[in-house]
Nucleic acid binder design. Structure first.
Length: 304
DNA sequence: AAATCGGGGTT
DNA sequence: AACCCAGATTT
């Protein structure tokens, strides 16, 4: 399990070896990291927070255009707080999981109400905001406030699972042991910790990818436990994942697409979205209303 | 710990 | 057709 170099090496030599690994990854990022707009100098903490929420389960390429438009329309938390929610949901478009858009607006309102319109510092205060969980609080702390935080996203999980544990994929669920590993791996010095978080995340996105990792380009290839083990394949997925086709999630998406397009709709036409299963349409409609993503007035349904 | 919550590009 | 993506929230 543990990497070979963990075996009884003088503390100072271990430290220097780890420092070289860290520097190699940071240097790789300086050369190969993408020029993403939310990484630019002078981008506000709010803009970075928005990017992080949009990036929750949505790939970078799809976030880019939405983020640009969003920040142009609502550059400050107060702007989003005052926006019509229907417009917010339209601008969110097809980023997926539209509850994130709702929570982001609630987040903006909480920032205005409780923090004077400024993104608060500190992971505890950040986590208290709607839609901000462990990852996003750490990411905002690191990338917006340049603080030392244990950032663990899907990319970092994969890089650590492979390079340190020698495993092809991380576990399904995020464990305390995994958090401890990420904590141990984080450089002690603040500036280096920020660079490390950014660099490892990018390494996972560009090189140590889920499908076809490009190990030949990896700054960690010489000391990667997974490479050393001969890059063993992952076990076959024990459970087939739930298909998307035919799920409530898909139907909710279809209904939201209609509401974004038309602003409102009579209820009856929505049942044409699945003539085979009106109960499903009904169920999804009710759940959207419960979630605050749609409102009913009379025989019509519209965006909130 | 597991389920639920979109949507689309890649393989 | 399956897999994956800068996760959060609820149960």
């Amino acid at each position: 399990m543990a990497p070979a170099r963990a075996v009884v090496v003088p503390a100072d030599r271990t430290a220097r070896a780890e420092d070289r690994e860290i520097d190699a990854v940071i240097a790789w990022f300086a050369d190969e990291g993408r020029d993403l707009p939310w990484r630019h100098e002078g981008v506000s903490a709010w803009a970075i927070l928005v990017s992080e929420v949009m990036l929750q389960q949505t790939p970078v390429v799809r976030v880019l255009p939405r983020w640009r438009e969003w920040m142009e329309r609502w550059p400050e938390p107060a702007d989003l707080a005052d926006a019509p929610t229907a417009e917010v949901l339209r601008c969110w478009d097809r980023l997926g999981y539209p509850r994130r858009a709702l929570r982001l607006q609630e987040c903006a309102r909480a920032i205005v109400r409780e923090h004077g319109g400024r993104v608060p510092h500190g992971e505890e205060a950040l986590r208290a905001l709607p839609g901000i969980g462990e990852y996003t609080a750490a990411a905002v702390t690191a990338f917006a406030h340049h603080g030392r935080a244990v950032v663990v996203d899907t990319n970092i999980r994969r890089v650590l699972a492979r390079s340190v544990l020698g495993r092809p994929v991380p576990d399904r669920s995020y464990s305390a042991a995994e958090r401890a590993l990420a904590t141990r791996s984080l450089p002690a010095e603040q500036g280096r910790s920020v660079a490390w978080n950014q660099a490892v995340m990018e390494l996972g996105a560009l090189v140590c990818t889920a499908r076809s990792p490009r190990c030949e380009l990896c700054p960690l290839k010489a000391q990667c436990a997974w490479v050393a083990a001969g890059r063993p394949a992952a076990e076959e997925g024990s459970r087939p994942r739930q298909a998307f086709e035919g799920t409530d999630r898909q139907m909710r998406g279809k209904i939201m697409a209609v509401l974004r397009q038309d602003g409102s709709s009579r209820e009856a036409p929505l049942f044409a979205l699945d003539a085979e299963d009106p109960a499903r349409v009904r169920r999804c409609l009710e759940s959207l209303i419960t979630d605050g993503l749609a409102v009913r007035n009379g025989a019509e349904v519209r965006l909130p």
